[in-house]
Write a protein that binds this DNA or RNA. Structure first.
Lengths: 255, 255
DNA sequence: ATTATCTCATTGTCTGACAATGTCAAATAC
DNA sequence: GTATTTGACATTGTCAGACAATGAGATAAT
């Protein structure tokens, strides 16, 4: 991304590099700064110690002493992890692991604007992903996953009919579908978008409880996914998402 | 996201709070730490000064002096922004804005695993998004956007036919389409996934130059998008993505 | 005009200190 | 004996000052 130095003309700047192929074989040397090494050491430690989400990391002083670097270096490394949501830190308490870490993890930050328009945008993107995940789930789900989907549906319908707060059951139900898609990235991104959606929604509008009218449709959704009827499952999912979208639009216009 | 504290039973822990409604009306006080305020001040400054991507931020010392906090506090705040990909910092040079910032931005970190399987997964998700973005672009693009798409196509075809490195032109071409979709979130997420894809790809396999065989198809893609023929545009896009997917699969199997 | 060198501004790291706050155990009250 | 309060301690947060490492731009040399 730092290679933004070419106007159309720059293609002609070949006077020096007589042999492009040789140059092309070179790969940029990784610039290793101190806190990157700290991060690597931390990853190694976490893997070796088998730390799980919720576990506490060693204190800054311990780490600094052990790795033989200043505490501020440790702090900066941890701060960048905090920015990426991998750890949470609490004054007086300690630092705890908030996401799974392994030597081959990679972190993708996405920035959104916190405004009403974003509601429709996040919903638009999420819809596309959910529909595809639903389609894949109908095709790929194995027996165990189908049973999980059915079970989660029952919990959802129970909560809904009892007048309880069904949102968590709803999240679990859709989570089961997304997991059955066979591509965990769908579920991960959908969840992130869902969280963002709620963050945006709750901020100006209070509690989010959208799509109540769509809950009865979930029984059909589960049915078609479990049957492996991808087309119908997609159709129902589309219907559900449309209901939510309509509600969102109504709320936005109302303001 | 911090409100994950409800087992079903916890609803019964009401012995003290006689009046739940009163309690419910309370919202948690934002815990403002020093560097959060620094971040807020920075956002304000960036908005006021109208800083754009690529612009330089004031130096750490200037910020520390101006905001009346220690330099390390400034550094930690900047570090967390760095972790979120909002700024890049260069020793000896300075700090540069790398993403759009505004007071209502929100930052979503996503973690992926860096492995061969992820290639197909990221590509799978990206495909869905690109196809939808293409469809929307064919429907929504305005005159200016159509012209931009055509112009970018010409540059791409020129680079390709001259045997130059066409990847940046390709990125710009698709960027124009994604922007024309009318939902910037598509473009943002696609770009992130694209970067991740390349990170994963380049690491074990060297230079990424996938989809060369698909470049000639881009002329049709542009044609249909500009004409507003969404169905055909989607079909061509699908074809392009399939070519890339086939190549990725071949490379993975070969190892 | 090109290249090499120098200077300086800027970020990176270290040290040491104190502040602010959550945790946990001891002390206290019932 | 049990529940509550209190306080010592550990831990993260912030500050200040110093020096190192590096990149960019100015300057000098060819």
């Amino acid at each position: 991304m730092n290679t933004k130095n070419k106007n159309p003309q720059s293609a002609k700047n070949v006077k020096k590099s007589a042999n492009n192929n040789v140059i092309r074989a070179l790969r940029p040397i990784k610039k290793r700064t101190r806190d990157m090494e700290v991060i690597d050491a931390l990853i190694e430690m976490i893997e070796a110690a088998g730390l799980k989400i919720g576990d506490r990391l060693p204190t800054e002083n311990e780490l600094a002493k052990k790795l033989n670097v200043g505490r501020s270096t440790i702090r900066e490394a941890l701060k960048s992890w905090q920015g990426m949501g991998i750890i949470t830190r609490n004054k007086g308490a300690g630092t705890i692991l908030a996401a799974e870490v392994s030597s081959n993890s990679i972190y993708v930050p996405i920035t959104l604007k916190l405004e009403a328009e974003s509601l429709l945008r996040t919903h638009g993107v999420r819809s596309v992903l959910e529909i595809e995940a639903t389609r894949l789930a109908a095709i790929n789900a194995n027996e165990k996953q189908r049973r999980l989907i059915s079970a989660r549906l029952e919990i959802l319908m129970y909560d809904f009919e009892m007048g309880d707060d069904w949102r968590e059951a709803d999240a679990l139900f859709h989570g089961a579908i997304n997991e059955a898609s066979g591509n965990p990235l769908f579920g991960q991104m959908i969840k992130q978008l869902h969280d963002v959606f709620n963050d945006i929604y709750v901020e100006p509008l209070g509690e989010a409880r959208l799509g109540e009218a769509s809950i009865p449709l979930h029984r059909n959704l589960a049915k078609y996914v479990v049957e492996g009827n991808a087309d119908e499952a997609v159709r129902v999912m589309q219907e559900i998402l449309d209901i939510v979208q309509t509600e969102v639009k109504a709320i936005i216009n109302e303001r």
